[in-house]
């Protein structure tokens, strides 16, 4: 869909010599707005840094306001105009914008994305957004709704990458559950991913989770590993056989 910039329409209408027509499609309008948003976010992060430093002297100092709520209506306008990426932006920034007007219903945004944008090259990003909304915590969609929407994308888009991401994101949203049945469902998604798409990068991560569930439970003999220290010397668990060992995954960060 091509949209003519309104000011330009007036200009063209009134001018004796018509300038070269400039068209802006919603897609490029989106990228322009996104760039402006990223700039505003960079400024905001810098202001937060300044505020943090100044706060020690003046604890009552107000933190700088995030630019997201101000940008939300502008993205929403593009979304209402049919720009798919703007819809996705609104979906992923829904919380931080505390958006309350216009097309604010998240479920409607989701349905719109699935129905009208499932075949876009960036469909995987819709799947990832749905993955983040899938958990049953807070005000999320819950797994049933989110999974249904993901399946809707798979029905419309036969790119294997989309299918892999759906399996992976379903697994992710269930793997940390306290409910054993849900963890078992996660395992099922990961097994399908590992067996049907073994070479995909996400299959490596799914395989790690399966390894943990199948080999790293209390009462199991711990599998060996071979790695290296910071100087490149080999380190393996077998080096410490016969000793009590605490394996500690850590970092300074």
């Amino acid at each position: 869909m091509i949209q003519l910039i309104p000011q330009l329409v007036l200009l063209v209408g009134g001018a004796a010599v018509a300038p070269t027509p400039v068209f802006q499609d919603p897609q490029s309008a989106y990228f322009e707005l996104e760039e402006a948003y990223e700039e505003a976010m960079a400024d905001w992060r810098e202001a937060v840094g300044v505020w943090r430093a100044a706060r020690t002297d003046d604890p009552k100092l107000e933190p700088p306001a995030s630019p997201t709520p101000k940008f939300y209506p502008r993205f929403l306008e593009l979304a209402d105009g049919g720009a798919g990426r703007a819809k996705l932006w609104c979906l992923t920034h829904f919380h931080s914008a505390s958006a309350r007007r216009g097309m604010t219903n998240r479920l409607r945004l989701c349905l719109d994305l699935v129905e009208n944008h499932a075949t876009e090259t960036w469909a995987v990003e819709i799947v990832e957004a749905l993955g983040r909304l899938a958990s049953s915590s807070r005000n999320n969609l819950g797994t049933n709704v989110a999974f249904g929407l993901m399946d809707g994308i798979v029905d419309r888009n036969d790119d294997p990458d989309v299918k892999v991401n759906v399996l992976y994101n379903k697994g992710r949203s269930l793997e940390r559950s306290d409910d054993e049945e849900e963890v078992e469902r996660a395992l099922g998604f990961y097994r399908t991913l590992r067996d049907e798409h073994p070479d995909h990068e996400l299959a490596r991560r799914a395989t790690g989770f399966l390894f943990r569930e199948e080999n790293l439970q209390i009462g199991m003999r711990c599998p060996d590993f071979l790695s290296q220290d910071v100087d490149g010397n080999p380190v393996s668990l077998a080096d410490y056989r016969g000793r009590v060992v605490v394996i500690d995954f850590w970092g300074f960060w």
Binding site: E175, T207, F209, F211, G219, R221, C222, V244, V246, I247
Partner: peptide, 27 residues
């Protein structure tokens, strides 16, 4: 955090800790 042993062992949170007895069993 996404390579090597953490990837192979499916580590998704830090610290993750395993305590093994002298026979190498996760206890």
């Amino acid at each position: 955090t996404r390579e090597g042993v953490p990837l192979a062992w499916g580590v998704t949170y830090w610290p993750t800790i395993y305590v093994l007895d002298h026979e190498g069993v996760i206890r």
